[in-house]
């Protein structure tokens, strides 16, 4: 299969790879770069478990071709903690008991981060809207919504 060169940053680190033409960003990040925090729940863009940020935009990495990410800055949940300190969203997901099996959690956190990056103090409705592309089968969503609102409050208190 034809190989295509691609360079991007993953959680701030420069990466340069030859990838199969047509390979998804999900497969490249997981299998070639070893960051398994994005999950494959459907490979068809219906579950949100593979969500990542590409240049700050929420993207389904299972529907994104790696070769289209040339020069992009990619962020995953695996790269969110800095110097061993958890991101407020990660802390809030723990405090609110918002993860059970944990499989949807990295994607949920990405969806929530995309929201908070642009709307630091969201309403409940805005949180619901932001999470509506992500499937969770364990929690019943309520703890996840609460965690995102908690993280937003923690952010605004830190900023104040």
């Amino acid at each position: 299969m034809a190989k295509v060169p691609v360079q991007f940053t993953l959680n701030g680190e420069e990466k340069a790879e030859f990838v199969d033409s047509g390979a998804t960003l999900l497969k490249v990040v997981r299998d070639k770069l070893g960051d398994t925090s994005p999950k494959s729940g459907c490979n068809q863009g219906t579950c949100g478990a593979c969500s990542v940020l590409v240049d700050g935009e929420l993207r389904l990495s299972c529907l994104t071709l790696a070769e289209t990410c040339e020069g992009a800055h990619i962020v995953t949940t695996g790269g969110l903690a800095k110097d061993g300190v958890l991101h407020p969203l990660q802390r809030a997901f723990m405090d609110e008991f918002a993860a059970q099996c944990g499989f949807c959690t990295p994607g949920m956190i990405m969806a929530a981060k995309a929201l908070l990056d642009r709307t630091p103090d969201p309403s409940r409705d805005e949180v619901v809207e932001a999470l509506s592309g992500n499937i969770c089968r364990c929690t019943g969503y309520e703890p996840i919504i609460r965690a995102v609102l908690t993280a937003a409050r923690a952010n605004s208190q830190n900023a104040a």
Partner: peptide
């Protein structure tokens, strides 16, 4: 839960 730090950082192994 002892497993939850792994869940929120994407480090839990499936």
């Amino acid at each position: 839960r002892s497993d939850v730090p792994g869940h929120v950082t994407g480090k839990t192994s499936y």
